[in-house]
Design a binder for these strands. Structure first.
Lengths: 79, 79
DNA sequence: GTGTAGACTAAGGTCGACA
DNA sequence: ATGTCGACCTTAGTCTACA
């Protein structure tokens, strides 16, 4: 499982659990709505600054989002 | 303080404390030596996959590297 | 409210060379 | 062993539009 895929899942899970729409998240983090969409579907990967602004918008520490991403990767273990 | 700058400091600190050279880290993480150099000096920012492969090479969980990056940002607090 | 597509600009990342 | 420079190619991220 690719990192992008895992991050996408972690992002979608976090966002939905906070009750945000992709649109709201995009606005709040100064990113494009279509980009958030692609991130969640694992078709793009974020840069450090995107990770930071997204997690700030979600009121989640960035390292937590990364940690969850890693957990998802470990679960679907193909190394 | 920019995220790139904080990450660069966190990276350099982690790498030196592990006793690796930039060259060794670059080789081990499949990145270019010059790029590692620019990262440490805060002139470039990494993508998610770079963060993951770098921290794996350093035997540090990626979320730890991010956490330390955030700590450095908070210390030099300009929001 | 979300996925996708195409076209675009900016930045990620490589490579060879020299101090 | 590291910084930098120039040229290069790839991908992050934007924007408009339509289902």
């Amino acid at each position: 499982m690719k990192p992008e895929t895992a991050f996408g899942l972690a992002l979608k899970t976090a966002r939905s659990s906070k009750g945000f729409t992709q649109e709201q998240l995009a606005l709040n983090s100064n990113l494009d709505r279509t980009f958030i969409s692609m991130l969640e579907r694992g078709q793009r990967q974020p840069s450090l600054t995107s990770i930071l602004s997204i997690s700030e918008s979600l009121n989640i520490p960035a390292y937590e989002l990364i940690r969850q991403t890693m957990e998802i990767m470990d679960k679907n273990n193909k190394s």
